[in-house]
């Protein structure tokens, strides 16, 4: 038994096993989140949501996946086939790969990169490429419009997103997510969302825009451009796009928790669960994901000019001001 455990801890084997576990988690997260999304929508709109498959409709994701697997994969006749089929992959791989650097519990991280935050920023920026590929490859006007909106939105909101990380980086003095979590205390008043409240809010809003969710779902824009960059997709390619959307939504929630809400740290010191602190991480992340869904079913979509105004004229100045406040406070104290 002990030899087996030692073997599993050896470097390439440990990495591949834990990466497989991450991939399993991400794909299941996507399936569960579609279910949760529809249930939340149901309860907010005073109806039940899916309740036919399994007890209280809990097996609905399995039925969805089965349906999507058996569905034909239609592509438009004049589509640029390589780009068309490559786009879902280019969207999913970045969304799944960043999960590597998230610490789920003490010592439970696939790769403790010393540039973890930089890695997150760099790899999520590839996602915009996937959106453009989907929009161009589909050879459809709606798709192209959606892709242009998506690219503009993701480039614009990357600026406040990155700027809002700088406060935490300054306070921690490290780019590693593990160090960021360790430097936040085991009580909730030691977490960074209190001294960095404007940054936390900015990161939340910019993250929401970065994963293209309501009220920032202009690239999808169901009621105006019917589905935006993913209008021509069907079957498993569509499912992969959805999976990457939900994976990046979960990712944004977990990064929110890691940077500003203490990661796996318990809210009060006596609630420390040791190696089972991933329960706290999961609970906090689920709460943030629920607020994402709550916002989705409560708020209307922004206009394009409002979107740009919010990003450049409100969020960027807030982060810059708070950056100076943080630097001044660190200089004084």
């Amino acid at each position: 038994m002990q030899t087996v455990l030692n073997l599993l801890e050896m470097e390439p084997i440990r990495f591949f096993i834990s990466f497989g576990a991450i991939l399993f988690l991400v794909l299941n997260l996507a399936a569960i989140l579609t279910m949760a999304e529809r249930k939340t929508a149901g309860y907010i709109q005073l109806r039940y949501g899916p309740n036919r498959v399994g007890p209280r409709g809990l097996l609905q994701p399995a039925a969805d996946v089965f349906k999507l697997f058996t569905k034909e994969n239609v592509s438009p006749g004049r589509a640029d086939l390589w780009i068309f089929l490559g786009a879902p992959i280019a969207m999913f791989i970045p969304a799944a790969a960043v999960w590597m650097v998230i610490p789920f519990a003490p010592n439970a991280v696939v790769a403790n990169l010393n540039i973890g935050i930089l890695f997150f920023v760099a790899v999520t920026s590839i996602g915009a490429l996937g959106v453009i590929m989907a929009g161009y490859g589909s050879h459809s006007t709606f798709s192209l419009l959606g892709a242009l909106r998506g690219a503009a939105q993701m480039i614009s909101y990357e600026v406040p997103l990155i700027l809002s990380l700088l406060g935490v980086i300054m306070l921690t003095g490290s780019l590693s997510f593990v160090d960021v979590v360790n430097s936040q205390g085991p009580n909730f008043w030691g977490w960074y969302f209190l001294p960095q409240l404007p940054m936390a809010l900015t990161f939340y809003i910019a993250g929401l825009a970065e994963v293209k969710r309501v009220p920032f779902d202009l690239p999808e824009g169901e009621s105006e451009i019917v589905g935006g960059f993913m209008v021509e997709y069907s079957g498993m390619t569509w499912a992969l796009i959805q999976a990457s959307e939900f994976a990046s939504m979960g990712l944004m929630a977990s990064i929110n928790v890691t940077l500003f809400f203490g990661g796996w740290q318990p809210p009060l010191e006596f609630l420390d669960l040791g190696n089972f602190n991933w329960i706290w991480f999961g609970l906090k992340t689920a709460l943030i994901m629920f607020t994402f869904q709550w916002i989705r079913w409560s708020v209307p979509r922004l206009r394009m000019d409002q979107l740009m105004d919010l990003g450049w004229k409100i969020l960027v100045p807030i982060t810059l001001v708070w950056l100076f406040v943080t630097a001044g406070a660190m200089l004084v104290f």
Binding site: I115, L118, F119, V121, A122, V123, T124, S125, I126, A128, L129, I132, Y136, L148, A151, A152, M154, I155, E158
Partner: peptide
């Protein structure tokens, strides 16, 4: 490497395509 991905893949290529 991270800067290469962030700047060249995530920004330059996207802006060129845009």
């Amino acid at each position: 490497a991270a800067f290469q991905v962030l700047i060249y893949v995530g920004a330059v290529t996207v802006v060129i395509l845009f």
